[in-house]
Design a protein around this nucleic acid. Sequence first.
DNA 1: CGATCCGTTGACGGTCTTCAATATGCGTGG
DNA 2: CCACGCATATTGAAGACCGTCAACGGATCG
Lengths: 250, 250
Amino acid sequence: MNPLDATRALMDGLGSEANVCMKCGSRSIGLCAPLDVAALDDMSGESERHALEPRDAIFHQGDPARHIYTLTEGTARLTRVLPDGRQAVIGFRFAGDILGFTPDKEHAVGAEMLTKGTVCRLDRRRLEHLFRRYPVLERRFLDLCVKELAASQDHILALGRFSAEERVAGFIISLVEAQERRGRVGPVFDLPATRADIGEFLGLTLETVSRAISAFRKRGWIRLHGHSGIEITDRPALMGLGSGEGVHAA
Amino acid sequence: MNPLDATRALMDGLGSEANVCMKCGSRSIGLCAPLDVAALDDMSGESERHALEPRDAIFHQGDPARHIYTLTEGTARLTRVLPDGRQAVIGFRFAGDILGFTPDKEHAVGAEMLTKGTVCRLDRRRLEHLFRRYPVLERRFLDLCVKELAASQDHILALGRFSAEERVAGFIISLVEAQERRGRVGPVFDLPATRADIGEFLGLTLETVSRAISAFRKRGWIRLHGHSGIEITDRPALMGLGSGEGVHAA
DNA sequence: CGATCCGTTGACGGTCTTCAATATGCGTGG
DNA sequence: CCACGCATATTGAAGACCGTCAACGGATCG
């Protein structure tokens, strides 16, 4: 995997294929891809939808892990907090991604909405049941999980070795690519996270993120449209910086 | 999971149960735990052992992923390199851990020995075959993979939010706990990685790692025995620092 | 016994954080 | 529709932390 794909894959998280799941509506569960119609029916029949507002929690760190969720609309962030209150954003999740899957008793991370949206909730025991009935589903979880792991490792690489501007550039590119993979076309893309959210994801302060974005703007690499619109005007430049083709050339 | 467990679980990686695998000898493959004797026999019959020296590569980043490996003796590191040559150590692996499992065509990380040791090599197609014959094995991979993912997320948290000393303290604690879980008792533990390796794992330079270790020594928290022996003399202090009970108290 | 690798320590400089002030966009209610 | 107020973003200045460069010390091995 290209290091540029780091955050991209991370943010895609579990499930990013584009096919339609019966009850969940327009956007799909990547998981459903290998299932036949009967299985989809099973799965849909056992899930319930919930509408959520910005800042609503889907689940909290430490909650008993009784359900898994599919984010069907909107954007969410995964967070992890330390005993002393410091917090990090572990990743962002978009429509089609899966949240809260763990073999543990409790959720190790919390999940909160950044925008309005909806989730599909599936009881964990029912998922186990589905695993037994459709073994291919379990294999799919395994594959997605390994992909996610690779993405996390890329993020580790970025946090450990990238400068502030490199991280922000990589983040913007991954955000754009994630939206393109979901069918977005226009030159203006969504920037659903605040500077603070981005900073907590990249291990930077919000000021440093803001300065990096301003620098890109001044160099003519991007243009901002309001508080949540971003246009890429020099994609190669951003990609070069964000994928580790640093000055430290080999 | 306690944030302190971050690196610990990461370093344990896939597989840490203590039971004996037929051919691999003394230390076990965690994977084998749920299998019966016939299955173990199958698995052992299809693997081959390799002896390795320090700095030997087990596989390189980009190699076709044709095998998976069980580290049966010794310590290894997983590395990932950037186009410009910058490198990060993604994690350390110890006896009993699994290396190189991926659904992708190529290895996304490289693996090299830090010490002398041996690995058990299993053809990937044979693993797929075993998955079909013993479905519980696949489920085990999934669980281990999710655990590993949680560990990576803790490492992300550490890289993004911990100071240099906090990271080094957390690393030492996890190293010690990993060895204790493998049955090591004495007050003196093994430190199989160089300052440079530790630095590349923690996103620091070797000098900064050295300074942190010196600081702990001067505070009476640890004592060094030669180049690869470390004794913990004030464990609560190290644990407090390494688990994020920072000054920023809640 | 010299060579080499690894670790330690010091001085200096850069990057990013911190603290602070100001500006801009956005929603609300007049 | 415009004015107001709040949240978010921007920008500046100062300083902390860590990286860089460099010299030295100690251990191991041939």
